[in-house]
């Protein structure tokens, strides 16, 4: 009975993951194209709906490339790390009160750290690395930027944690049954989204490498299955960060009981994604390592500390009255 229940939950999660992947990749291809007054995919299927499957098939059927890439393990390690940690982070996130796989006390910080590891892992392709090579420098640059932005990310997520007085995602959502966190913590919400944009590699912090580069290293050098896995892990990270955003600030599965709680989470994540798509196109790209440090340490950390002060004041003086 327990096994059957677990399998059902896993099935639900997989269906959610794959459908979410499909919808988000299609949104990123089609809606972003229309925002930039392009047309996006049109050829395969109705308005390019089957484009994603064709691309997956194309990279899967790239057999000669696959075998050569399997031969040197060092190139595969980074990709596998990024995928496994992305899936682990997704499995820690509950979708509703019933649909979840793991209920760990420290689920929020664990989830965030897994996403960070998977983000760094994609750059770990250590093939033909010399001491003064570019790839090593890229890896170090990536690690440093992720660490810098992790400070603001963790401090901003301290707001909801203080309100619910727990690191558990269930408790954080249960604490929002009356007031959603976004109502009195908009600052922390903004900081969370901006520092997440580094982790999901979209604008305004999409370029993790040198200023002269226009795309990430592992997407331009890898082919076949490696490319597919690295892009899919990137999109899984986007989904898990979006759901985390809804759980922390938009009340998760809380909502009027007209609809199923799972549908509420889906609607909220979809709305968040659409808002973020607008943000990608509007905010200009932030370039340069020093500018990134300034943004993180001087601006985002300051905002999140301000938010923390407000939250502590509310918890100490207003919560007893309510």
């Amino acid at each position: 009975m327990i096994l059957k229940n677990l399998l059902l939950k896993a099935f639900y999660l997989l269906v959610f993951l794959f459908s979410g992947l499909y919808i988000i990749i299609y949104l990123h291809k089609k809606v972003l194209a229309h925002m930039q007054s392009r047309r996006g995919p049109l050829q395969t299927g109705f308005h390019g709906t089957l484009q994603i499957f064709s691309q997956i098939l194309k990279s899967l059927l790239n057999w000669p490339k696959l075998f050569t890439s399997l031969q040197d393990l060092s190139n595969n390690i980074g990709v596998m790390i990024s995928l496994t940690f992305a899936i682990l982070a997704f499995l820690l996130i509950p979708l509703t009160e019933d649909i979840f796989l793991m209920n760990i006390e420290m689920s929020l910080p664990l989830c965030l750290s897994f996403i960070m590891i998977s983000n760094v892992g994609a750059f770990l392709s250590i093939r033909k690395v010399k001491l003064n090579s570019n790839k090593m420098a890229d890896l170090l640059d990536r690690i440093s930027t992720v660490l810098i932005f992790s400070i603001s990310l963790f401090i901003s997520s301290m707001g909801p944690i203080i309100v619910s007085s727990s690191f558990n995602l269930f408790e954080i959502v249960r604490a929002q049954s009356i007031f959603y966190n976004i109502l009195y913590q908009p600052l922390s919400f903004i900081v969370f989204l901006l520092s997440c944009s580094l982790l999901w590699q979209r604008l305004p912090l999409d370029v993790p490498l040198k200023d002269t580069y226009f795309n990430t290293d592992y997407l331009s050098t890898q082919t076949g299955l490696n490319y597919l896995i690295s892009t899919i892990s990137e999109y899984i990270n986007i989904i898990s960060l979006l759901i985390l955003g809804t759980l922390l600030y938009l009340g998760g599965w809380n909502g009027p009981k007209i609809l199923h709680p799972l549908i509420w989470t889906i609607i909220k994540t979809f709305i968040l994604q659409v808002i973020l798509l607008f943000l990608y196109t509007i905010i200009p790209r932030i370039r340069g390592f020093r500018k990134k440090i300034n943004l993180s340490l001087a601006f985002l950390c300051l905002l999140s500390f301000l938010n923390l002060l407000i939250v502590i004041f509310l918890v100490l003086y207003l919560k007893p009255i309510l």
Binding site: H34, R38, F278
Partner: peptide
């Protein structure tokens, strides 16, 4: 951007 999303695209 909002105007672009509901307008006919430039490319064909």
């Amino acid at each position: 951007v909002i105007r672009n999303t509901f307008k006919r695209s430039v490319t064909v």
